[in-house]
Design a protein around this nucleic acid. Sequence first.
DNA 1: GTTCTAGAAC
DNA 2: GTTCTAGAAC
Length: 206
Amino acid sequence: AGAARDLRFDLTGEWAQPLRKCALDPANADQTILYIDEQVVLILKDRFPKALYHALAVARDPALRSIADLRPEHLPLLAHMREVAVAWVRQEKAKDPGAVAFKLGFHAVPSMAQLHMHVASQDFDSPTLKKKKHWNAFTTAFFLPLETVEAELRDRGRLALMPPAEERRLEGLGLRCHGCGQPYGALPELKQHIVGCEGVRRLPGL
DNA sequence: GTTCTAGAAC
DNA sequence: GTTCTAGAAC
């Protein structure tokens, strides 16, 4: 008998479908499509971005609903998603040399159906970043870097899904600047800090 | 994922 | 009194 499927990764609600719909039927998508080929569509996260630059590389294979479906055979797809993401990052950084370093990766427990990789500048300067959960989803171990995901697929054949208790722990962690480590009690204070933090400007990444 | 909003926190 | 967070949404 196979293991029971983790319901957190099923994402069957209607509100969770826009990325999947875009990947499967891009001609009728209302998102801004930056790039598309047979394997991947790069979508600009223009309505609710969490940083000055924020895009999503979405897999077009209908079988890839989330990171739970990834297997070693998908390593070439992940490499291609990196190429597509890096091309966009280079283009944006050429236009804006002052942009903060980008990072590529997946949320440990996604909220939207269809495998999607975040491509985001680490300024996290956005009016639509409103909740502690948003902050911690990008600045804690809840964010799985692309290299980590690739290594785990290579070494273990699939991803170990984050236990619900660990998910709750990371979402609830106290707010802390990812650039300098300074703790903050409230999100508005932290958001005011990050726009001027030198540590944020010096973050490593793409 | 977001919206709404009650009531906690300040 | 105002700001801010966090839980329900069928």
